[in-house]
Design a protein around this nucleic acid. Structure first.
Lengths: 107, 107
DNA sequence: CTACTATTTCGCGGTTTTGCGAAATAGTCA
DNA sequence: TGACTATTTCGCAAAACCGCGAAATAGTAG
């Protein structure tokens, strides 16, 4: 007998996926996968207005994908969910038609 | 020197995440993780109108997350992207505060 | 062909994102 | 304190998404 996951859990998962469902936010995540970045660097990376980038970051933070830390005048963001980049590697592999069927993720 | 991923790749990834960003679609994915289902069974699972469920399924299919096969009168859907359930296990673990930092996903 | 079943497509209001500039906030430095 | 920098919040208009019922499509059985 299998037990279904709660509605609350589904909502929590959906929040993460929604946060990742924007190309510019994914670009930021890619940057952060390489290490900590201040907002100014992310603005350069996505070539969008400060207010827009800041909003994107708040969405990612709300979902628990990134965490921030203020140091001096700047705010630094870092990735808080390390399985995200490896999942994207799975997606890319699938898109390239690789045999993802036999591949295992998240041990 | 690190190379950035193309805009096309980001868009493709975002499409997958967007498809997964709805609780009812996640419920369907959960059902399908247990095995093939016809649309009628998924309608029961999410308790929504046929047209709504059908639309959800087309979104998932468009993103490459599920595949469909018609047999007789019914259409059967199955999961086409097996790393999805294991990624969600990672998300749940992170939400429960487990030490996801040290955990490896997608080898 | 007709009746029936399973599913998809269409079109419509209502809600939610998005991107931006303007204004607000906070930290630093003189 | 006042000037300056980095970042967030606010309010708006455009776009995208959501759920539904009605209509369309396809397959089956008689």
């Amino acid at each position: 007998m299998k037990t279904l996951v709660s509605r609350r859990t589904l909502d929590a998962r959906a929040l993460v996926f929604k946060a990742l469902s924007h190309p510019d936010r994914l670009r930021m995540v890619e940057e952060l996968a390489d290490g900590e970045r201040c907002v100014c660097e992310l603005v350069k990376a996505v070539e969008s207005a400060w207010s827009t980038v800041s909003r994107h970051l708040s969405v990612l933070k709300e979902a628990g994908i990134v965490a921030d830390q203020k140091r001096g005048l700047q705010v630094f963001y870092r990735l808080a969910l390390p399985c995200v980049p490896s999942f994207m590697a799975c997606l890319d592999a699938a898109r390239r038609g690789e045999a993802v069927e036999v591949r295992r993720c998240c041990g």
